[in-house]
Amino acid sequence: MIDLANTVSAYQKDAVEKWEVTVKERMNQNRIEKVLKNLQSAGNMAGKTDENSIKYSIRDVRKTNNITVTYSVVIPKSKQYQAEVIMVISGRKWDKTTEKNYKKILHQATGRYFTETSQIFACLVTSPDAIIEVERFLKYLTETIGFERQKTQIDKISYSRIQKNIYGYTPLWNQKLDMNMQSVNVQIAQVQASNKKTQLVIGTPILINEY
């Protein structure tokens, strides 16, 4: 997230409108019980049960420079499936203070609730007021982080905000996915904002949420 946000901010000041980091990890029953117990002190906890699982949600009540932290714990009723812990850290804008507070939150949470096997997904949305020409921005990414474009998908659905999806790879970031026998760890969605201007939604190693 830090590399991504600082790269976009260096391209154009105040270009970051909002950002989000998701940390996921599957755990066995013994471990999930310990994590759930620790999470009870992190914030307000709510739970609900359906026929397949027990789901808990925890919202961190601490306010840190407008950064929001939430946790989700999903415990399947069937013992053949592992439980999953999900943490989402999100905020608006990006500056040095935000970066410092984000690093502190991530370090504390990953050290307490997660291990090195967890997966981290980062997502950033540029401001609709930012003036970003897509091809020029992609060239900038190539020059700064070694971005290599692997694939471009044009969205032809008339009512969709999405205009195109661009997939690529940078050797600077460790996490990656294999797509058509190519390594991918950057996805860029070009979308149309409500003011008809272009916004970019950038994710690594891939976008996992609706945009």
Rank of each mutant, 00 (worst) to 15 (best):
W173F: 13
A122T: 13
L39P: 03
Y140I: 06
A15L: 07
S127H: 04
K164W: 00
P205E: 06
T98Y: 02
C123F: 13
Q80V: 11
I86K: 11
T170M: 03
N195F: 05
V35D: 04
V85G: 01
K151Y: 06
D50I: 06
R26E: 13
I157H: 08
N52M: 13
I2R: 10
T117G: 13
A15R: 04
E51L: 12
A42P: 01
W19Y: 09
N28I: 09
I132W: 08
E99L: 04
G91M: 07
T115G: 05
K34L: 11
N65P: 06
I188C: 05
E84S: 09
I120D: 00
I89F: 07
S118K: 15
A189Q: 15
I206A: 09
N174H: 12
Y159G: 06
N38P: 00
N38S: 14
H107A: 15
I206G: 04
K156L: 12
I154A: 01
N209R: 14
A122V: 12
Q80R: 11
L207S: 09
V73Y: 00
N30E: 14
T204A: 09
G146N: 00
Q175M: 11
H107K: 15
P205L: 09
I86N: 10
T142C: 00
I67A: 04
F114W: 05
E20I: 12
A130M: 05
S53D: 09
K176Y: 15
K24D: 08
Y81G: 02
Q82H: 07
V23M: 07
N30D: 15
K197N: 13
L172Y: 10
I32R: 02
D95S: 09
G203D: 03
R59Y: 05
A5K: 11
G47Y: 01
R26I: 05
T142H: 06
V69H: 04
Q187L: 12
T49M: 13
I208R: 08
Q12M: 13
E25W: 04
V61N: 14
W19I: 11
S118I: 08
A83M: 05
N30V: 08
E99D: 08
M45E: 10
V21M: 14
I188F: 02
P128Y: 05
T142D: 07
V125C: 08
V73E: 00
V21T: 13
V8L: 14
N165M: 10
R62C: 04
V88T: 14
